[in-house]
Amino acid sequence: MFEAKFEDGGLFKKIVEAIKELVKNVNLEANGTGISLQAMDTSHVALVALQLNEKGFKKYRCEKSLTMGLSIENLQKILKCSGNDDQITLRTQDEEPTTLSFTFESKNRISEFQLNLMSLDQEQLGVPDTEYSSVVRMPSNEFTKICRELGNINEAIGIETSKEGIKFYVKGDIGEGQVSVKINDTEKPEERVECEVDEPVNLSFAVRYFNLFNKASALSSQVILSMSQDQPLVIEYIIEEMGSLKLYLAPKIND
């Protein structure tokens, strides 16, 4: 039997909202340590990796590892029947479940839904646990704003790191521009900008994907960008007390 209860069901809805335009069908994996998901977008340029630890749930039980194939679109249809303040419980009964049950619970209403599961043959990538040569922490809303602004000028955005901070730049047909974000150690953790740069990097990415990734900014006030030269970048949103959502994006290769 598998059971996982979100005290804050709104959080689960935010996670689904954050990934729904990146991936269509996903395998949700549950085991004794928690729930995880790894899926690529159809063009195999971006990868979503979610980890929710067992300790972050109000109630968690998983006696045997299981894989639940879900359509994100259908999952969202069911989640629309829940309130943002509901507690949400996911449950399966059988060893090889064909449905995933949802209970939405508020002060004055309990709703039950069953979502049909699918058998998905999905490619899994082995993402190495590497050290990145530049790691930047900055407010997620600021990153969203920069991507939106620069994305108007060109479809590719450049990112350059140095000990002084991080620089975003674009060169398009209409002209070019850059935005430098300065390091600060303000007392407000959500406004802090930190750069750990062992080796500076200069990389270029399709801004369209960043604009999709930024839907996850509702999960955390800070975003962590981890980069190494000529390697995929990782954008991480820490989900407080539960785990994290990591979004990987392959770099553009300039010839």
């Binding site: 063009s43 971006a46 990538l125 590719a156 553009k252 290769i253 300039n254 010839d255």
Partner: peptide
């Protein structure tokens, strides 16, 4: 202006 690389170029399949 360059082309978009794919994740398989960096991460192995498991």
């Amino acid at each position: 202006t360059g082309f978009q690389s794919r994740l398989e170029n960096f991460f192995g399949k498991t």
